[in-house]
């Protein structure tokens, strides 16, 4: 487990940093650690570390889907947003390799604080045949274009256990 590099529960009370006297403006330091769970969506993030792209699918025969592109969700959902029954996991890695394309794309020049993606970074939205949603991700090693065929790559060697473990590259013919 990572160690805190500073003990924020024992700040020196005289360590106030005064920025301005009129009006009085002071600095209030903090660096809290959030303990965050992926809960029932954990298989998706575990899948990325194993080189698999997992989606979920509604299997309730009585469900009336709101959309027109079927009933497979990526990002995954533990419950179907239409009928609220539990979904089942499916592996869409092969399907993504064969059919994924760029729906839209951008280049980020100025990210916000705490960004870990190398800049400039190419962000893309990915459409996959038979998947009813369009997941956001990153493209590597090419200039993106709408409609470009792409395939997923995974950070299996040094996983971050975040969405950054998934990226895409142009599909090899």
């Amino acid at each position: 487990m990572a160690k805190h590099d500073y003990d924020f529960s024992n700040l020196n009370p005289t360590a106030t940093v005064l920025r301005k006297l009129d009006p009085i403006v002071i600095e209030k330091p903090r660096a809290p650690i959030h303990i965050h769970t992926y809960g029932g969506e954990s298989p998706f993030f575990r899948g990325l570390t194993e080189g698999k792209l997992l989606a979920t699918r509604c299997v309730n025969k009585k469900c009336k889907p709101a959309g027109k592109e079927g009933h497979v969700f990526l990002p995954p959902r533990v419950y179907c947003p239409d009928c609220l029954e539990r979904t089942e996991w499916i592996d869409v890695t092969e399907r993504a390799r064969k059919t994924a394309r760029i729906h839209t794309h951008i280049t980020v020049a100025h990210p916000g604080a705490f960004n870990r993606v190398p800049i400039p970074c190419e962000l893309i939205s990915v459409e996959i045949e038979g998947v009813s949603t369009i997941i956001m991700s990153q493209l590597r090693g090419a200039k993106p274009e709408i409609g470009m065929p792409i395939e997923p790559v995974f950070e299996t060697a040094h996983p971050t256990f975040t969405i950054l473990d998934l990226a895409w590259v142009p599909r090899k013919a």
Partner: peptide, 27 residues
């Protein structure tokens, strides 16, 4: 501030990607 605003995207699936709302509109 831009990071704080970007936490109004989905923190697991979007925020990590640039931490910048302008990006989500740019798409």
């Amino acid at each position: 501030g831009n990071h704080y605003i970007a936490t109004a995207a989905d923190k697991d699936y979007e925020t990590e990607l640039g931490h910048i709302y302008t990006g989500y509109y740019a798409l």
